[in-house]
Write a protein that binds this DNA or RNA. Structure first.
Length: 463
RNA sequence: GCUCCCAUCGUCUAGCGGUUAGGACACGGCCCUCUCAAGGCCGCGACACGGGUUCGAUUCCCGUUGGGAGCGCCA
């Protein structure tokens, strides 16, 4: 039987890094095994679910290239199904009506916590006939002795004493079902073979296993993925900065790099660090997912991104950088020029944002001068040299890297100065900073007109 | 408090009884060099602790410690 797995986000927020990783591992498992990957929208929390968040999550999946199979499944459209299953448990004595009020329960919980006890439902309504005139929630009648055991693909056998569990509510007093119940009903009816999710669900699993058994259904395989932490070893959250995948898009990361990096958190294939999408699919193995949590490391992500960027064509690099240039009011009108310009900075940016930062000066007529650089290199001496360079560049007919190099070499020979003393003043004049690709290259890309204009402007600068 | 999960360089990880404990990011140095990158070379740096099991434990078992998660009429 081909595996069937699902990713089941609730539309109460954007797709975040942890969710993306869970989605990725489900997707990789399905694609690797030739199985099916479906998306289920868990929108039973009417208070917090929105269509906007749902669309955002879908857009996030699409951006990452995590395509799902078949139609979306909405829990909100399956209410009848849950009701039938609640009735089924009621009928066979595996569930009962509970008229305890939320206030009473809250008080019991507070008392238990104060007494340093594990808060559990005390079973008040378990053995008494419920008052039909009062609103009632439905509770699952869980076994009070014995052990519940299940198998986890990446952790082996996990077991809980049933005494640790209590009678959980499966339907609220308004009739709507609760999470642990809908998950089970959905996973069964959608014929899921493997439940791949974050390990924060391990504690829910025994309750769910009990529900599978009470309902008379086979229990699927589980695989609980280790969590992703922030640098402080706490569950990744807004406090740690970017968590929504779109924030990473906005920072100029490549979707394939995100996938590559996320896949390597908790999983490895020997010493290989860089994977294409296809390689990920080819090598992925749930059994090799290890169980320790991982800390999200932005530096490593940037490096992975640089490796993927290095394999892109210059056309792809230009198109990827374009929106980030436009965001700062700069437009690319000449793509051949842009290819040369951005191409000269390829190794200097690990993200599209960094690439835009580095190549910005090519597209900005009025260069932003860095004060410290001007102070240091465009002083009186620097300007004399700059003027000298300008005088020799101006009459040059072929403004190529080679012919420009000739001029600088001659100047070095004549003046006895070091190349750096010539290169830095012109670099600052051209780019506004002391950092750029080789000056011959920058000069040749800018072209004579642009270059001379920039030099003239630099010459007028006060220091 | 109780239950469950976890534990190899700062970080991500390889390892599945015998290895000089390997790789990657980051960091430091050198080379290259007009600056900065990229690239190349070198270096720093880890089996949390204590008991077992075994001829032999990073590896298997049990504790301890440390970290995390769960304990809702949220998902």
């Amino acid at each position: 039987m081909k595996p069937r797995v699902r990713f089941a986000p609730s539309p109460t927020g954007h797709l975040h890094i942890g969710g993306a990783r869970t989605a990725l591992f489900n997707w990789l498992f399905a694609r690797h095994t030739g199985g099916t990957f479906v998306l289920r929208i868990e929108d039973t929390d009417v208070e917090r679910s929105t269509k906007e968040f749902e669309q955002s999550i879908l857009d996030g999946m699409t951006w990452l290239g995590l395509d799902w199979d078949g139609e979306l499944v909405y829990q909100s459209q399956r209410l009848e199904l849950y009701k039938q299953h609640v009735q089924k448990l009621l009928d066979c004595g595996h569930a009962y009506r509970c008229t305890c009020t939320p206030e009473e329960l809250e008080a019991k919980r507070a008392a238990a916590t104060a007494a340093k006890q594990k808060p559990k439902y005390d079973g008040t309504c378990r053995n008494r006939p419920a008052d039909p005139s009062k609103p009632a929630a439905i509770r699952f009648k869980a076994p009070q002795e014995g052990t519940t055991t299940f198998h986890d693909l990446c952790r082996g056998t996990i077991s809980f004493e049933n005494t640790e569990l209590d009678d959980l509510i499966i339907a609220r007093s308004d009739g709507t079902p609760t999470y642990n119940f809908t998950v089970v009903v959905d996973d069964v009816t959608m014929q899921m073979t493997h439940i791949i999710r974050g390990d924060d669900h391990i504690n829910n699993t025994p309750r769910q296993v009990l529900l599978y058994q009470a309902l008379g259904y086979p229990v699927p395989e589980f695989a609980h993925l280790p969590m992703i932490y922030g640098p402080d070893k706490k569950k990744l959250s807004k406090r740690h900065g970017a968590t929504s995948v779109f924030e990473f898009k906005d920072m100029g990361f490549l979707p394939d790099a995100m996938l590559n990096y996320l896949a390597r958190l908790g999983w490895a294939h020997g010493d290989q660090e860089i994977f294409t999408r296809d390689e990920l699919i080819q090598h992925f193995d749930l059994y090799k997912v290890h169980s320790a949590p991982a800390i999200f490391d932005m530096e490593k992500l940037r490096w992975v991104n640089s490796q993927h960027l290095a394999k892109k064509s210059i056309e792809e690099i230009v198109e990827g950088t374009r929106p980030f240039l436009e965001a700062r009011g700069l437009t690319i009108t000449d793509t051949a020029y842009a290819a040369k310009a951005i191409g000269s900075e390829r190794e200097r940016g690990r993200t599209f944002v960094e690439l835009a930062d580095a190549s910005e000066f090519y597209f900005r007529d009025d260069v932003n001068f860095d004060d410290a650089s001007v102070q240091k290199w465009l002083n009186a001496d620097g300007k004399v040299l700059l003027q000298k360079i300008r005088d020799r560049l101006a009459p040059l007919e072929s403004f190529t890297e080679a012919s420009i190099a000739e001029i600088f070499k001659a100047l070095v020979a004549e003046t006895g100065l070091k190349m750096v003393n010539l290169a830095q003043p012109i670099r600052v004049a051209l780019t506004g900073t002391t950092v750029s690709p080789g000056v011959y290259l920058v000069l040749s890309i800018l072209g004579k007109d642009r270059a001379l204009k920039r030099i003239d402007r630099a010459l007028t600068l006060a220091t």
